[in-house]
Nucleic acid binder design. Sequence first.
DNA 1: CGACTCACG
DNA 2: GACGTACGTGAGTCGC
Length: 934
Amino acid sequence: MASNHLYLVDGSGYIFRAYHQLPPLTNRYGLNVGAVYGYTAMLWKLADALDKADGPTHLAVVFDKGSHTFRNDLYDKYKAQRPPAPEDLVPQFPLFRDATRAFSLPCIEEAGFEADDIIATYTMKAIAAGWDVTIVSSDKDLMQLIRPGVDMLDTMKNERRGADYVMGKFGVPPEKLGDVLALMGDSVDNVPGVPGIGPKTASKLILEYGDLESVLAAAPAMKPSKMRENLIANTEMARLSRVLVDLHREVPVPHALDELRLDGIPPEPLRAFLEDQGFKTLLSRLAAHAPGKDKADPVAGAAAGSATPAAEVALPDFVPLPPIDRDAYETVTTLERLDAWIAESYASGIIAIDTETDALDSISANLAGICLATAPGRACYIPVGHRSDDGMFAEAPVQIPLADLVARMRPLLADAAVLKIGHNIKYDLNVLKRVGLDVAPIDDTMVMSFDLDAGQSLAGHGMDEVAQAVLDHSCIPFKEVAGTGKKAISFAQVPLDQATRYAGEDADVTWRLWTRFQPRLAREAATRVYELVDRPLIPVVAGMERAGIKVDREHLSRLSGRFAQEIARLEEEIHGEAGQPFTIGSPQQLGAILFDKMGLKGGKKGKSGAYSTDVTVLEKLKADGVKIAGLVLDWRQLAKLKSTYTDALQAQINRDTGRVHTSYSLTGAQTGRLSSTDPNLQNIPIRSEAGRQIRDAFVAEPGNVILAADYSQIELRLAAHMADVPALREAFRRGEDIHAATAQELFGEVNRDTRGRAKTINFAILYGISRWGLASRLEIEPDEAQAMISRYFERFPGISAYINETLEKARATGFTETLFGRKTWFPQIKAGVQHIRQGAERAAINAPIQGSCADIIKRAMVRMTPALEAAGLDRVRMLLQVHDELVFELPEADVEAATPIIRAVMAGAAEPLVSLSVPLGVEIGTGPSWGAAH
DNA sequence: CGACTCACG
DNA sequence: GACGTACGTGAGTCGC
């Protein structure tokens, strides 16, 4: 049987060629249709090749749809300088689709993707099926796809092109073409490339060093030249270009390969179309014989008049998925079956992976088993660490030895051609790293969900919730397999059949989620933030979690003891003032003592009807000379520090590493910030002296120091940039004290009082101000506060414009965006209840600023280790992130060399995607402890 | 498990 | 006309 041969026609390429080659021609509606005629003639010519030996058995015509694709998200200047389509071509666009359908050929387009990506996707599918492919185009980007079984056809020059053609034209084989294109750039598409490097130099460099990354790595060692300088200065641009020229090979295409089968071209509806457009020459040719047939086809002819047009390509949002069947998953306990699954994984090229462990934190958990899914519905569970059911007497189940599993999985997990998808894969990365396995490349459906839907009705982005929302599927609750409360067992004790059902479902669901999220990223313009910010961050944060930070237990213990003494003393004094003992930590009891028993003024608050006893209330009482209020404040501070920090932190020190390993969530904060748990290392005290001492417990190993690098005033700087406030911008450029500058602008003089007020107002602006909020902070009347706000807006008109535009956009679209395109949704922005709506408005004003800040520090984190390593500083470890601060541990001897690099990476983190009109200031300090580094 | 309080940016 | 007000987090304690 002759093998199948798929022809993929670059319809957009055809259109432009047709336009430039044919004279104007008008149809009976007065519409210029010269290009349509040319296009139709070209299709005819192609169809005439149908019966040839190497002609198509299957064919599709592929178009670009819209001008915005995921590449614009990656680089906003992509194709930006391309002139708009000629005026007389635009009205012809719909007719090209009509013409294609007239030939009864499927025409395919997909929002968010270019025709090239769809062609690449079908090409890969056809190769996998063992088909031959011919790409009908002369586009150089598509030449990357050429390989045995895949060639290109230039119908204008009537020339078939294979690997030799690419070698001849670019000097490299097709698989290296992407690297060459990335270096040389493309002025038509505005792919930046590296200045001064054209096709010749690019191919020479790639031939010499092998690939782009190797060229970039070798650049510093090249002999001094303009080229070397350009390579070093444009490393990021080159990497970005590499991504831009790469073809997306996993577009969710609407038709299976088989649906593209070609069975001759029926005369209808082609005849009707030609007639309608008045293409008489072609009509007369049709009368002689239909294209693609030497003579008229009697069967096709018989169907004339009743032929249905080619499948209308209404693109389904969903590739249909088989139902979930938990009984279909396999338990793998032999090396033969393991090898079979590994082979299947390579063949698939995309696998979902999920590790099961005996604990919740990825740093101390032991591996119980690994689950792989190679396709929706196709999953296996490989137990390695399961114990007996009772954990003691019964025999442990037969399992593959861990060492064998690790050895066989290592090449697969590290293979660049196999994508590993996880839901919160950071966890799996850490668990697997601890048994010696590196995993790359990765995708994370939890992060994808977050980048698409942050702020939407979902409370979180955990697997169970996302599966419910996206797949309408209820996952087995973990409790159901592991039990709950005292009777809970670890996953390592779960019987294998149950474990397989549970783990298999997780990996299966992950694969399915990926099929839903992957196309949405491009369509919904989330590619930029996912690919350039969050996805590359995952392994970086995983590394920080594994690194942990050393904590001096004795120091904490001493503090605990000191706090305990002071707390006991205060307790006695408070009870004495109250005239009776009571639980000071109970707001209820404290309220009763203060306001009922002692009869102090301070009213009720809150819907619970309980007295409020928070700091603001107690501070007021204290100011009125109420002694007990001040004592309770002191007690509260110490009790908080002791229980939350000095006591709890000691318990968090890992016995193996002697360090504290937090867990960061990439999806916890709606604005895009990270959050930190178990323990939270983003709220370690610093503001009070007693609290500050706790930071001194975070120390460096002997011979090392802690280095803390802070962005100074980054949110205000971004506000000045985003709202375009010249006065603030200039003040930052001149390096002035920004709150003092604001005070000068608002009050005409700078002193302690006006600077303090200005600082409060500056923050109020970032948070979405209200006159009442500002009034209570400044302890003035709302009218006065309103006057100050008005003055602020008057002086900085960009701010009020920014607020209005942000709110209008949020109301119109439902979301706000950061400088890097991160979306946060605000479903409550149109709420009928005023205070709910206003709350959403304030959050919407803040989100772009807070979120842009988060994007910037994330980009700094992604680049930090490579930048340090490039300078030979591989002993510098990045340990913590606290929103605008990065904490490192490094040998004392490296401080001098590392400091300027850390500063440069942080200050330049927005570039080249975003150029800020305000400089980013970075303050760096070092010392034996975190406290001393500030 | 929710309310309250408070630690951080 | 009253309400209750700054944005984003996580954790410990109390008390139902």
